[in-house]
Design a protein around this nucleic acid. Structure first.
Length: 591
RNA sequence: CGGGGAGUGGCGCAGCUUGGUAGCGCGCAUGGUUUGGGACCAUGAGGCCCCGGGUUCAAGUCCCGGCUCCCCGACCA
């Protein structure tokens, strides 16, 4: 069958022989629909928090998902390899990540005391491979990928396979002569990613994202939109702008502020504002709009040396991801009230005016306008007529504001939407972060030695499986897209009469010989149990054989995703079922 | 790591307030009756009530400590 993944040569399975069972009730551990269904249908079993067994049905799907990934990665020049789960520490020390990454990476010593770790991703090992095998620009570009189990000791696993600690991931790495070549290649990966997700029945949107621990200069996420998601995306319904909230921008338009109406303001003026320790209270009290006020917070960068004083327009919120990025640190932490006290500051009355010893970071929203209200750095007092640049200087001017629903789109100005989603895959333009630090150089045409320019592209296999089920289901159970269904056909017999049994066995035989992927419910169960299990397990085509169907002339055929059914004579069953499967595949055909 | 919740046969839960023989539904086993939407009858098996300490004549229940798991947040793919 075209485009059809094989499952190790096993086409048919009797339910009386199949390992696993279905659960009638919702397991207490499951919150998300996909998680509940995967446990109830006997797809996965939890061994520990975030650590799961994949049972036979799930594993068949996993292999089909992987084959779709292979097909698409091969189509854009990928070559599959496999890299070790266990890495020696030294390559991670070379890249620096041994020191940057926290306890989410599992570290241990081997018997001779050598530092080792469980690779949570494979930039280091693939870069090591590249530096040992590549000498010349003539060998570039190339793309390697592998599909492998990874372990990250997540602070909080959730949603079954959505966020597991041990998970299967497809990771691809491309190596280029220069960044232009990477930029030419990058869109091909993005297209492949969309094709993979679409082939699996999971719609995704491509959004701008933070580079995170990978480093590099540009990154996208491929996100499945669902309320059960854990990422927040900022989307423009008008022009298609899409970004993770971590990096999303927006137009900081001003609406009738004091500053814009009064280009020239006098010296700052200290005013009494007893008890007015929030933007809302102080603005109400002084009768000014929050857009004419300055919000000030103190943060400590990771490592915690010099604190940062962060100023932003009063109506906006600080985006800690953006702040961390512009402070060139991995994360930031808000100062506690006790720490503020040590600096002689009071929460609610702070401002950058007249303070020293801080890295002052100001949001670019404050670059325009003047005559702001800001804290006086004294309890119960604020300052009026504060002019950024005149009354305080910032060490860094940057966009550190958090985009939110309703803010104007940075591209077209239309109000933005905020949606939840699950990140299925990501693509990074890494640049030379790893090749330069690990010495992966090549000789270019002009004789010069250059670091290879890299891209890396990850996609979670188990997470995609969870998304497939989250998206393709109803109140009765899973509705597998045929492309990734464990079996294509669910054959069930009702009743114990020899007539029915013989007919069902005959059909099963015929399907088996014809290599139709069929799950045969040959159990001695009541009709209700069999139908409900068939709905729960969700194979695309259901074939029912019973006294009633035989009286009506054959077997009943029903698509899981549709309501109606038809009776087909037994002689025509094989051909009809094959045609229906073909038609189902057509629905997921790409291009 | 902060906040909340839960650990009782395989699964889902009650019992704990007010200490006194460990229960229900589903599942499982055996026999029988059933078979188009989670059937019925009968019989039966299955428990370190998360762990450790304490109080008490007596602890699933009260007290102290710990572990595990789930949810929200932080963080992350």
């Amino acid at each position: 069958m075209p485009g059809q993944a094989s499952c190790g040569g096993t086409y048919a399975m009797r339910m009386t022989k199949a390992f696993g069972k279905t659960l009638r009730e919702k397991p207490s551990e499951a919150e998300m629909a996909s998680h509940e269904l995967m446990v109830r249908a006997g797809l996965i079993a939890k061994l520990a928090a975030g650590i799961y067994d994949y049972l036979p049905l799930a594993w068949r799907s996993v292999r089909k998902i992987e084959d779709i990934m292979r097909r698409e990665m091969d189509a854009i020049g990928g070559q599959e390899i496999n890299m070790p789960v266990v890495n020696p520490a030294d390559i991670w020390q070379e890249s620096g990540r041994w020191y940057d990454i926290g306890p989410e990476m599992v570290r241990f010593k081997d018997r001779s005391g050598r530092d080792m770790c469980l690779a949570m991703t494979h930039e280091e090992s693939v870069t090591d491979l590249a530096r040992r095998y590549v000498d010349s620009y003539r060998q570039l570009p190339f793309v390697l990928y592998h599909i492998q189990t990874k372990f990250r000791d997540e602070p909080r696993s959730r949603g079954g396979l959505v966020r597991a600690r041990e998970f299967i991931m497809k990771d691809a790495y491309s190596f280029h002569r220069d960044s232009e070549d990477l930029q030419r290649y990058y869109p091909h990966v993005c297209r492949a990613y969309e094709r993979i997700c679409n082939a699996c029945g999971v719609p995704v949107v491509k959004v701008l994202s933070d580079v995170g621990m990978m480093g590099g200069n540009m990154a996208h996420e491929f996100t499945y939109l669902t309320d059960a998601g854990e990422d927040t995306l900022i989307l423009c319904p008008e022009c298609g702008y899409a970004a993770n909230r971590e990096v999303a921008t927006f137009r900081k338009e001003r609406a009738g502020t004091v500053g814009s109406e009064l280009p020239k303001v006098g010296a700052t003026e200290k005013v009494s504002t007893p008890g007015k320790n929030t933007i809302e209270l102080v603005c109400d009290y002084l009768g000014v709009d929050p857009t004419a006020s300055i919000k000030t917070m103190i943060y400590f960068p990771q490592g915690g040396e010099k604190p940062a004083l962060v100023a932003i327009r009063g109506d906006l919120d600080i985006n800690e991801r953006k702040l961390a990025n512009c402070l060139k640190t991995s994360e930031v932490r808000l100062a506690t009230p006790e720490e503020l006290e040590k600096f002689g500051l009071v929460q609610g009355y702070m401002s950058p005016v007249g303070l020293e010893g801080f890295t002052v970071v100001a949001d670019d929203s404050l670059q325009e306008g003047s005559g702001y209200v800001a804290g006086a750095n004294e309890k119960d007092f604020h300052l009026k007529n504060v002019v950024p640049g005149r009354d305080f200087k910032a060490d860094v001017w940057a966009d550190i504001a958090s985009a939110r629903e309703g803010a104007p789109c940075p591209v077209c100005g239309h109000p933005l939407d905020a949606r939840r989603g699950i990140e299925v895959g990501n693509t990074f333009m890494l640049g030379t972060k790893y090749s330069a630090s690990m010495g992966a150089y090549f000789r270019d045409e002009d004789g010069s030695l250059k670091p290879m320019v890299m891209g890396c592209y990850g996609m979670g296999v188990g997470r995609l499986l969870a998304c497939i089920i989250q998206e393709n289901r109803d109140e009765k159970g899973i509705i597998w897209p045929v492309t990734v269904a464990p079996y294509h056909v669910h054959l069930l017999s009702l009743g114990t009469s020899a007539r029915v049994k013989d007919a069902a066995e005959g059909v099963y035989q015929r399907f088996n010989e014809g290599r139709v992927e069929v799950l045969y419910d040959d159990r001695d169960e009541s009709a209700g149990v069999k139908f409900n299990d068939a709905d729960l397990l969700g194979m695309p085509v259901r074939v029912t054989i019973s006294e009633r169907s035989l009286d009506r002339g054959g077997a009943e055929i029903k698509l899981r995703r549709e309501k109606g059914s038809t009776i087909v004579p037994l002689e025509e069953l094989y051909a009809t079922v094959n045609r229906m499967i073909q038609e189902e595949f057509e629905r997921y055909r790409q291009d």
